[in-house]
């Protein structure tokens, strides 16, 4: 049985209010049966320094990704991972993490590929929980093993590959959520972040640049629905509920944060995240790239290939 929905009024405006929880709701519901809190951070040690009481840790590098191929774990691996964290198929999962929930949103996205029904984000993430002076502990829980079935990952509904993006060009909106300097090609990576070896700078033709942080308020929570609509829908990017949208960034983590907002807060059904993102596109041979601040045109050659 899923945990109750957070009844906080400001969440009720979102298309899927059941996908977000506030820090105060979580603090009061930590002992709710069937609810498991999961921390996913960029920093692999942050959980060890102190975490929300009862929370388990899932790391994107060492848990979600395969060690050799650039892909996520398979159905058996996923079942084993979640069961080991005391999660069953009907468990309510509340995710939170550092860096404005980038990795928490990324983990939520991966969980969604496996069709886990009840995945929620802690609005404001770890930063807000800490800023509010809420309890942290270094006690690592040892949960009873969950019962998790082996489910095949769905790589079509919410995930886009490079070929999908090529086929999408000229047919639907692309949202590039990187910094303006990465979008224009003047910079190949985020300031103060690892250089991940991208050969070319710029963006995918026709992509519109809306940096991920545009979606959050100063305290790291998502902006109210009306403000998100003004950014992404009428008066802003112009996305409509019926659009097929693809989001991307550098490796797919920041774009998961925007994917979550478009899919669950604005209720756009068809939003895919391109996890190959710029570290694939910027290294790929013979894909079109646009440099500069303008979205640019989809080259005629690509349109012909897609039509053929």
């Amino acid at each position: 049985m899923p945990a109750p929905t957070d009844p906080t009024p400001r969440l009720a405006d979102y298309a899927h209010p059941e996908r977000l929880v506030t820090t105060s709701w979580l603090a009061e519901n930590l002992d709710t049966p069937g609810l498991v809190v999961v921390e996913s951070d960029e920093d692999v040690l942050l959980y060890e320094t102190g975490h929300i009481p009862g929370a388990v840790k899932i790391d994107w590098h060492t848990d979600l990704l395969q060690p050799v191929e650039r892909d996520y774990l398979d159905g058996a691996g996923f079942a084993d991972l979640l069961a080991s964290r005391g999660i069953s198929r009907d468990t309510t999962i509340v995710l939170y993490g550092d860096k404005n929930n980038w990795w928490a949103a990324y983990t939520a996205w991966v969980f969604t590929l496996f069709g886990h029904e009840d995945v929620r984000l802690l609005d404001g993430g770890r930063n807000l929980w800490v800023a509010e002076g809420r309890e942290l502990t270094t006690d690592v829980p040892t949960p009873d093993r969950g019962e998790y079935p082996v489910v095949e990952r769905d790589d079509e509904t919410f995930r886009a590959f490079k070929e999908d993006v090529l086929a999408h060009l000229g047919n639907g909106p692309l949202v590039d959520i990187r910094s303006p300097q990465e979008f224009s090609g003047e910079r190949l990576h985020i300031p103060d972040y690892p250089e991940e070896g991208v050969l070319r700078g710029g963006h995918i033709p026709s992509a519109r640049n809306v940096p991920w942080a545009t979606a959050v308020a100063e305290d790291g929570t998502y902006k109210p629905r009306a403000e998100l609509e003004a950014i992404y829908q009428e008066g802003g990017l112009g996305l409509t509920a019926g659009d097929s949208v693809i989001t991307y960034c550098r490796i797919g983590e920041r774009s998961s944060h925007t994917w979550f907002a478009l899919r669950y807060l604005l209720g756009i059904d068809d939003v895919r995240n391109y996890d190959g993102s710029w570290t694939e596109w910027g290294n790929a041979v013979r894909v079109p790239i646009v440099a500069g601040a303008e979205p640019g045109e989809v080259p005629a050659s690509v349109k012909q290939q897609v039509a053929a």
């Binding site: 960029e42 920093d43 990576h189 300031p191 103060d192 972040y193 690892p194 250089e195």
Partner: peptide, 9 residues
């Protein structure tokens, strides 16, 4: 000197 390769500042 800032180390740009690092994940955090």
């Amino acid at each position: 000197e800032a180390v740009e390769e690092c994940q955090s500042p």
